[in-house]
């Protein structure tokens, strides 16, 4: 670059040129930053936000509705609900609470699975390990245990509420049946988890529980007509449950598979059906306007 002279006759060299350009560049960065910081004040307007939430969040009814409908997690709800259905006193949110507890249980359960081996050698030791070594391990195990209890309680109370508000009636008969099955699955989930620490408490609870299976009519070796059908301790329904004639390593493994894989899968499918049917059967049942005797078809 040849030397130039500016208006004042001073030599303008490379250095001066560079200085000038970087000043200009600084200006641009400054303005852009200011602009973008301004934009950040409305995060809903950002591309990132939109890519995740798909819709602009303007305060208008359409967007409100879309925010529910366009969200995988929220769209189990309708866009709008009966105004009185938002009152806590009608449902107490018990179904939702049950579902939330299920999520908590899946989360804590998966964490626990990282540390647990369903073998006679390791199972009990792993619990000790969880209690004493794993960071937050004790909390994790406690939360899993108590969430399981809470879920059983929530399921029962949910059923109680549904019955008391007559919500099983047409067109929700089928969903009630699904609900009953889900309740049974909840109990089975909790029960199969009982054995997993492989301690005396679980061992004897499961022994007591599965001993009943011996007495299954036709299929148990101590049940009515069982022996007549050739049932022995080695081929009856209890053997199938435990993978053996006593509660032992196989029972532990089976309980583990039922608890961690089979029942959660089955329950998830039923839950899907349950939620879908809630929507399809007209949302939650109420609170509906009361009907009068006179209005029934005789």
């Amino acid at each position: 670059m040849a030397d130039q002279k500016d208006a004042n006759g001073r030599k303008t060299g490379v250095l001066e040129d560079l200085k000038e350009k970087s000043r200009e560049f600084g200006e641009i960065v400054k303005t852009k930053t200011q602009e973008q910081l301004e934009e950040l004040k409305k995060p809903q307007e950002t591309q990132l936000y939109r890519s995740i939430f798909r819709i602009k969040h303007d305060e208008d009814p359409r967007n409100r509705a879309l925010s529910t409908l366009n969200n995988l997690f929220f769209h189990i709800h309708p866009a709008k609900v009966n105004r009185d259905a938002t009152r806590y006193g009608y449902t107490w949110g018990l179904g939702g609470i049950t579902f939330y507890l299920f999520i908590v249980l899946v989360f804590t359960g998966v964490m626990l699975m990282f540390y647990y081996h369903p073998t006679k050698v390791q199972a009990f030791r792993d619990i000790l390990y969880l209690e004493n070594d794993v960071p937050f391990g004790r909390l994790l195990r406690n939360m899993h245990r108590w969430a399981a209890h809470l879920m059983v309680m929530a399921v029962w109370l949910h059923m109680f509420r549904v019955f008391m508000s007559g919500s099983y009636k047409r067109p929700r008969e089928f969903n009630w049946c699904v609900g009953v099955l889900l309740m049974v699955l909840t109990l089975l989930l909790s029960f199969t988890g009982y054995l997993l620490p492989d301690d005396q408490l679980g061992f004897w609870a499961v022994t007591v529980g599965t001993n009943m299976a011996r007495a299954t009519p036709l299929l148990g070796h101590q049940g009515p007509f069982g022996p007549q059908l050739g049932m022995t301790p080695y081929n009856d329904v209890r053997f199938a449950l435990l993978g053996g004639s006593i509660v032992d390593a196989n029972a532990l493994l089976r309980a583990y598979i039922w608890h961690c894989i089979a029942i959660p899968l089955i329950a998830s499918v039923f839950m899907g059906v349950h939620f879908w049917r809630v929507r399809k059967d007209g949302g939650i049942s109420g609170p509906s306007p009361v009907m009068l005797e006179a209005e029934t078809k005789a």
Partner: peptide, 9 residues
């Protein structure tokens, strides 16, 4: 003091 033959901590 540890079950299953897995050593002492």
């Amino acid at each position: 003091n540890d079950i299953g033959g897995v050593g002492l901590t």
